[in-house]
Design a protein around this nucleic acid. Structure first.
Lengths: 132, 132
DNA sequence: AGTTGTGTATTAGTCTACTAATACACTATA
DNA sequence: TATAGTGTATTAGTAGACTAATACACAACT
């Protein structure tokens, strides 16, 4: 398994870990039933605190991507296989949208704001203040 | 001009201001050549520190959306009119993509991660760590 | 020139996200 | 039931983002 981490990007390590582990599952590097590296083992290899790895694992479990067994380890459930297909489809949607946006000369921050705006609309929880 | 602000959403006020002011321009509530509300005036109306408004204005200028004239005020340059069209197009792209993603039952965080992933790919600045 | 209204800069306080240090609790196996 | 290996919980330190307090600098107008 190959993990790409960047300690100087400003992106929290635990988020990068989540992304990379998901990628490993989606590409088949990790398959249903497989056991993931131990929290301590991975923390040692990556030279970081076990809690940081634990946080990534915890969130992955919360999203249903992995399964944590207290005292035993972390495992990839069989069910994620079909989910991987969905994620690949989603990734394609995002990629084509980003490509089209990039050709419009938008900055990254502007793209992020458009996305956040749409997400907020799908949620809808705002109050109003009126000026003359 | 109507401003929608939410002090309890966790989204920084200055970012909400940026979004709302852009929206005002894109919808035509603010037109080319118009003067925006004074920093102090807007800060007073919205009951916040002038620096917070100033920050929003500063970033909007950095993005070319408004023009700051030291001692005079903040203005909407004529050039933003064509840009508004581009932004409307971009907004449409994002909206359709978000709709399709939402129908795939993705969480907001998952969508954000896909977006960040694509943005990173368009940039490309990572180092690798290999595990056995 | 003076005055008033404008944006700008500096500094500091507060809050939260992130990471780490450390101790705890569960499970498997001998 | 002992022990080694696993995930879990609590607490604290650090850094950065956000906002505010305050003083500065420029521009228009008399």
């Amino acid at each position: 398994m190959l993990l790409r981490l960047n300690h100087h990007s400003g992106v929290p390590i635990y988020l990068q870990l989540i992304e990379q582990l998901k990628h490993a599952i989606e590409t088949g590097a990790l398959r249903g039933g497989d056991q993931l590296p131990t929290i301590r083992k991975l923390a040692e290899d990556l030279v970081m605190n076990p809690n940081t790895v634990a946080r990534a694992y915890r969130e992955l479990e919360h999203e249903g991507v992995i399964e944590l067994r207290h005292g035993s380890g972390a495992f990839v459930p069989e069910s994620v296989v079909s989910r991987a297909k969905v994620m690949r489809k989603a990734q394609g949607i995002v990629q084509s949208a980003m490509d089209r946006l990039a050709s419009l000369q938008l900055s990254e921050d502007e793209i992020r704001r458009l996305v956040e705006n749409e997400l907020a609309l799908l949620r809808n929880n705002e109050s109003e203040i009126t000026l003359d």
